[in-house]
Design a protein around this nucleic acid. Structure first.
Length: 302
DNA sequence: AATAGTTGCAACCGCTCCTAA
DNA sequence: CTTAGGAGCGGTTGCAACTAT
């Protein structure tokens, strides 16, 4: 909206935080609670902009943050969620409550992307992320969230038709599509929802619902959404990352999504190496630290 | 031991969304 | 209805630490 940057004031300190600054910030937040960040610099005397304070708190000082050493379970969950949601780190982070979005994002960029690359998966180029970008630039969240819903539905219908509705069909499929495309095909049918859900408001809930579809019966509960932030508010929409246009970075006209996507995606290919890795026995037996988002055999969704 | 190259993390920047006036 | 401001998200950058030569 053309506003000048919030930190343009002179005298605003940048760069690494000192322990003293941390202390001041922590004491302030302990006393007043997080929020109203704009008031923080003035009330504390910190020479930092409000954004910087918020970031420091959420990414570093907030209690309960786990740092470093991502477990294999966490890794898999991140990869899977990334495929589902695209680069919607805040949404992904809401399923790993002791991890920050920044941490997850960094871990993805520095470790997982490489790892997936060596496994022959698309890594970041992976449609999820890519599409997340394109989707983001293509339409406001509200719109593409709804589009996602439509896209998924349309794609699944097309797929069913293509597969003659045979759920047991061994999925014959040629040269593996990109992982996110596979992921898309595996998306569970969104739980039946009242018309009001069209608003797609509470995305954390929706994500949980979405992921419930991945659960084998009786495998525990889907995650709770933790942060009440907007991150969760846009969670499901991220799924659009997996479904929205795959056509590079150019903004995509409205019409270009759904059906063509279904056609593009084609029938579900056999699991790739990555897929197998993601779905191997390690997953779904739940590491307590994770949000209990087990992943089921994708074939179940058809 | 010194230097160059690489990696990983913390922080910043720019943008979008939401909401109150 | 419009607009301005606050909050938050995702991408990118800067730099310290580490590794290879």
């Amino acid at each position: 909206m053309g506003r000048p940057p919030c930190c343009e004031k002179t005298g605003v300190k940048k760069g690494p935080w000192t322990p003293e600054e941390d202390l001041v910030l922590v004491s302030y937040v302990q006393e007043h609670g997080p929020g109203n960040w704009r008031a923080v610099p003035t009330n504390t005397g910190l020479m930092r902009c409000n954004k910087s304070c918020r970031l420091r708190w959420t990414n570093y000082l907030r209690p309960g943050i786990k740092r470093g050493n991502f477990s294999v379970q966490e890794e898999k969950l991140i990869i899977h969620l990334q495929a589902l949601l695209g680069n919607r780190w805040a949404a992904i982070a809401s399923y790993l409550p002791d991890r920050t979005d920044n941490d997850i994002k960094n871990y993805w960029n520095t470790h997982l992307k490489k790892k997936l690359g060596t496994m022959g998966a698309g890594g970041d180029g992976a449609g999820g992320a890519e599409a997340a970008r394109t989707g983001r630039s293509a339409a406001p969240k509200g719109q593409w969230e709804r589009r996602l819903q439509t896209d998924i539905h349309t794609a699944r219908q097309a797929l069913r038709e293509a597969l003659s509705l045979d759920p047991a069909l061994p999925l014959p499929l040629p040269p593996a599509k990109t992982e996110p495309q596979q992921m898309l095909m595996q998306l569970p049918q969104p739980a039946p929802a009242p018309p009001s859900q069209a608003a797609y408001a509470s995305s954390a809930e929706n994500i949980a619902r979405l992921l419930e579809g991945w659960m084998r019966p009786g495998t525990g509960s889907a995650g709770k959404a933790s942060s009440g932030s907007r991150s969760s508010a846009s969670a499901v929409s991220g799924g659009e990352g997996a479904s929205a246009s795959h056509s590079g970075t150019a903004p995509t006209p409205e019409g270009s999504t759904g059906t063509s996507k279904a056609e593009d995606a084609g029938p579900v290919p056999a699991f790739s190496m990555l897929e197998s890795w993601l779905l191997d026995d390690g997953m779904g037996h739940g590491d307590a630290g994770l949000m209990g988002v087990p992943l089921a055999d994708p074939c179940e969704f058809f």
